[in-house]
Design a protein around this nucleic acid. Structure first.
Length: 224
DNA sequence: TTACTAGCATGTAGCCTGGC
DNA sequence: GCCAGGCTACATGCTAGTAA
């Protein structure tokens, strides 16, 4: 079997070369059956169950509102987790989540480890592809075309995070636009576009990168 | 043949309650 | 407050059947 991660990276890099852009993978998610994979995953390192009130678990649950999370396990100190899902057959399925592959404030999870996990699970369910820009995007242009929702924190504060929850583009489930510099305390201006893209069959890769680029191009237009 | 799915049985962990 | 017991939710082992 070929290397799934390299295949996707090659696909994206090829698109970047032909379109003068700089898309990158930020998050990989893989739904898997624990029944035959868990033993192999445990050989890769120590998985620790996150405590019920841990900050990381609460943060994960905020991001995973659709999936009925029961418990979450973390691979050592990496941003690599799997969480058990309640959907039937109960406790059989889990979702592997590999975060922070494109980061500025900390090292990403080791590529060799990601490759091993993907070759063990032999699948990939969806990925987040990101695109970073040094100035605030033109959100008004996007509002003209999409239903742009601003995220309001629990305290009722309007944040620098915006969602396009419905794109009408096949496989492109959602786009998040947020102030990356503020979020990670970077010390320089940086905004991030993040596209959640489902992958029905990784053997026949057809990522909607042209469509995502059209959206980032609109938002890169000069602010009026 | 191998990989995967699903049902049943059983083990484990966490929470709650009552007695001391 | 502490501990034991009971209950429930969570998790996994075993096995049989199915698909690739």
């Amino acid at each position: 079997m070929s290397d799934i991660l390299s295949d996707i990276e090659d696909f994206i890099n090829n698109f970047n070369s032909n379109n003068d852009t700089d898309f990158a993978i930020d998050t990989i998610r893989v739904k898997f059956s624990k029944q035959h994979k868990l033993d192999s995953l445990k050989e890769l390192g120590k998985w620790s169950k996150l405590k019920k009130n841990s900050n990381i678990l609460n943060k994960l649950k905020r991001r995973l509102n659709d999936d009925e999370v029961t418990s979450v396990y973390r691979l050592e100190t990496h941003d690599i987790y799997y969480y058990n899902m309640q959907e039937p057959p109960k406790y059989r399925n889990a979702m592997m989540v590999i975060f922070g592959i494109k980061q500025y404030h900390q090292a990403p999870p080791p590529k060799q480890l990601i490759t091993k996990i993907l070759s063990t699970l032999k699948n990939i369910s969806n990925i987040d592809i990101c695109f970073d820009v040094g100035i605030k995007p033109n959100l008004n242009k996007l509002k003209d075309i999409f239903d742009l929702t601003q995220y309001i924190s629990k305290d009722g504060i309007f944040t620098d995070t915006y969602y396009i929850n419905k794109t009408d583009i096949p496989m492109l489930k959602k786009i998040t636009i947020y102030n990356k510099a503020f979020k990670n305390n970077l010390g320089f201006d940086l905004w991030r576009f993040e596209a959640k893209i489902s992958i029905p069959n990784y053997r026949y890769l057809a990522l909607p990168l042209n469509e995502f680029k059209s959206i980032t191009d609109i938002a890169k237009a000069t602010n009026d």
